[in-house]
């Protein structure tokens, strides 16, 4: 297990707000191996964004870690100092919305070079002052990665403003920015939801190639199983702050075993002949139901489900599963 690049173990996090104590994450547990693309799937409000922020060492205001660990190559990301060293250097980040990520009044080159100025590149000489020659090195590296993400005329592109690029190109530039520091892990928070389908497919293929070429692991947050099928090697499914099932992409898409994963897959237009849905609503993190949080909406729920939270068990087919009804097959 020590070869995991990112491991989130038993993470429990609550946020104190005006309305009371919200239990946002409840035993989230998964790991990302080097070079692997891991999908993180869940509906809105399931805690994906909080989890991403926690991994980046920027948990929401008022957050309290109740238990668990988050480690990057064995280094503790829950320690703010350590996280600050890793974030933006060894862990890159691709935001959701390429239209909001840039400041409209500066050129894209100036913006990304400014980021590189503070993060530095791994091959920068030790203790060097930021001067013209260092800036030129950063620029050369940036041009190199812009070429890798297929931006035409990268030298010239640096001097252009964000509005001169289309959404797809802006997303490519952000990907280049994330790659520039040679990270070994990239967090991608729904990087294609703001894009059109034809552009989305281009970006997905690009990310897949880059992950292989640069041997970068990726944690890919999405809610679209179609996107998962295109890019992810494995998937972890979250429901209301709990990890319910983790497995390889074919395992989750073609043979989901947790009732929630199964019902979610059945909602996919490709999978259902009749339009269904999942009855009921996601419970509030202020008043989570005891035990399995999906139990109130689950057709298979019994007393055992509400008495205790089902543990995430290793199943014989290699997946992790948190459901008492599947334990006998685990």
């Amino acid at each position: 297990m020590s070869d995991d690049i990112l491991s989130v173990r038993d993470l429990k996090l609550s946020v104190k707000g005006d309305a009371g104590l919200a239990q946002i994450l409840d035993h989230v547990d998964f790991a990302v191996k080097p070079g692997e693309v891991m999908g993180l799937v869940g509906e809105s409000g399931c805690g994906k964004s909080t989890l991403i922020r926690t991994i980046l060492g920027l948990p929401p205001k008022g957050a309290r870690i109740d238990s668990g660990t988050v480690a990057f190559r064995g280094r503790n990301l829950l320690d703010p100092k350590e996280a600050q060293q890793i974030r933006g250097r060894e862990i890159g980040f691709i935001p959701q919305d390429p239209f909001q990520a840039f400041n409209p009044v500066f050129t894209v080159g100036a913006q990304i070079l400014e980021i590189l100025r503070w993060s530095g590149l791994p091959d920068d000489p030790k203790g060097a002052r930021y001067d013209k020659s260092l800036r030129a090195r950063h620029k050369a590296r940036l041009i190199e990665v812009l070429r890798a993400v297929q931006i035409p005329d990268p030298e010239e592109a640096l001097d252009r403003y964000p509005h001169q690029f289309s959404g797809g190109q802006r997303q490519r530039i952000l990907i280049a920015g994330a790659l520039a520091t040679r990270p070994s892990l990239i967090l991608a928070d729904e990087p294609t939801t703001a894009l059109d389908v034809t552009t989305q497919m281009q970006i997905l293929r690009l990310l897949r190639e880059l992950a292989a070429d640069y041997n970068v692991a990726m944690l890919f947050v999405t809610h679209d199983f179609g996107v998962v099928a295109q890019i992810c090697d494995r998937v972890s499914v979250m429901y209301a702050g709990q990890t319910v099932e983790t497995g390889t992409t074919p395992q989750i898409i073609d043979g989901p075993r947790h009732p929630y994963t199964g019902m979610l897959m059945a909602c996919h237009p490709e999978r259902s002949t009749e339009i269904t849905g999942i009855p009921g609503q996601v419970s509030s993190p202020l008043t989570p139901p005891p035990g399995c949080r999906f139990a109130p909406r689950c057709p298979r729920a019994t007393e055992a489900c509400t008495s205790a939270r089902p543990g995430l068990l290793n199943s014989r087919d290699g997946r992790q599963l948190a459901c008492v009804h599947e334990e006998e097959f685990a």
Partner: peptide, 11 residues
Amino acid sequence: LDLSVQATVLK
């Protein structure tokens, strides 16, 4: 909309 909600709205 989330997948499960989308399905009920379409219906």
